[in-house]
């Protein structure tokens, strides 16, 4: 499996998991895959919504013991 950059945003209310992902996407090169960890159920929905608008790709979206793990690939 290719390298995945974990963004541990558990317990993040502000800035929150999506902003942590945007920060990662802004600073890492195209092709990078991120895995955002979030304890907030809303992330499983709002991360994919932004990813679609911004033109990136959802690779996986799962829940593991109350932790939501969303994998995103930077495409542009």
């Amino acid at each position: 499996m290719e390298d995945v950059k974990v963004i541990d945003a558990r317990g993040s209310f502000c800035p929150g998991p999506l902003m942590e992902l945007i920060k990662g996407i802004r600073q890492e090169p195209v092709g990078t895959t991120f895995e955002v960890w979030s304890s907030d159920a809303g992330s499983a929905k709002d991360i994919p919504e932004w990813v679609a608008r911004a033109g990136h790709e959802i690779v996986a979206n799962s829940e593991d013991d109350g932790i939501f793990k969303v994998q995103v690939k930077k495409l542009r």
Binding site: F13, C14, P15, G16, L18, M19, I22, G42, D46, E49, W50
Partner: peptide, 10 residues
């Protein structure tokens, strides 16, 4: 604002 609501704090 960068995300889907007016502030990160719900």
């Amino acid at each position: 604002y960068p995300i889907g609501r007016l502030h990160s704090l719900e």
